[in-house]
């Protein structure tokens, strides 16, 4: 019997779909978002209801039953382009419940490998932006960090900057997704209207001076005799350059 699961394409929707499949002990032949054209022969289609609270519950259950590491892998996969790997994530979830924390030691298994690969590319970008995020000081003292990551990493990245820059107000701003996180000195929260904080709020007076100093440093520390632009571009892909003040003149 060919079974098809349909969810709304969102990470929460997928988590609810996984929970449905596990609870009903079903193995769908297709688990896909609305964009997919569907199977040719289908016996039954199950439409998944997306419920945010339930999705959170699925993750915390997985973390309790399996491990923090496995739950993080799942979350990282959901922050990336998971379209097309839904069945692998379902299989990983099932394996996790069966094997417990040993699931992440199955490096030779195709499903675990695929999940680890996907999670790693998200983890890699998170680590990259710990270094590549740049704050600009605005008139009212807010430090604003615009960036355009490939994956939806803003919530995974924010706690790093909370420990690092606790005594200044800042806002991380994912321009690609229009999402923002604000630290006001006490609390970390999602800002739904980041534009409001930027209105009538140009950069601070000393900002261009500091950027200038940084550019001078960057130019001076380069060794011409070892020039290797290819290596530079590999370590720091061109798509990230737009928001780096040191590369504005390149």
């Amino acid at each position: 019997m060919e079974l098809e699961y349909r969810y709304d394409g969102s990470p929460d929707g997928l988590l609810c779909a996984i929970a449905d499949a596990v609870r009903r002990r079903e193995q769908p032949a297709l688990l896909a978002g609305p964009a997919h054209e569907g199977l040719l022969f289908v016996d039954r289609v199950h439409t998944v209801l997306t419920d945010e609270a339930r999705a959170d519950e699925v993750i915390s259950y997985f973390q309790r039953k399996v491990s923090k590491e496995a739950a993080r892998n799942l979350l990282y996969c959901l922050a990336g382009p998971f379209d097309g790997m839904e069945l692998e994530l379902l299989a990983y979830y099932r394996m996790g419940l069966k094997l417990g924390k040993a699931v992440d030691r199955q490096h030779a298994d195709a499903v675990v490998h695929a999940v680890h690969q996907a999670a790693r590319s998200v983890g890699h970008e998170i680590h990259r932006f710990k270094g590549l995020l740049r704050f600009r000081k605005l008139q009212d003292g807010l430090y604003w960090a615009p960036f355009e990551p490939d994956h939806d990493i803003i919530s995974a990245l924010a706690p790093h900057f909370r420990t690092r820059l606790p005594d200044q107000r800042w806002m991380m701003h994912d321009l690609r997704r229009g999402r923002a996180v604000v630290w006001d000195g006490k609390r970390l929260y999602a800002e739904l209207q980041p534009e409001m904080l930027l209105q009538d709020n140009p950069v601070a007076d000393d900002e261009s001076e500091v950027q200038q100093l940084w550019q001078t440093f960057f130019r001076s520390v380069t060794i011409e005799g070892r020039k290797n632009s290819k290596l530079q571009a590999r370590c720091m892909p061109l798509r990230y350059w737009r928001w780096l003040p040191e590369l504005e003149s390149f």
Partner: peptide
């Protein structure tokens, strides 16, 4: 943590 890469890589 690396923060940037100069043209010499």
């Amino acid at each position: 943590c690396c923060h940037s890469w100069t043209p010499d890589g």
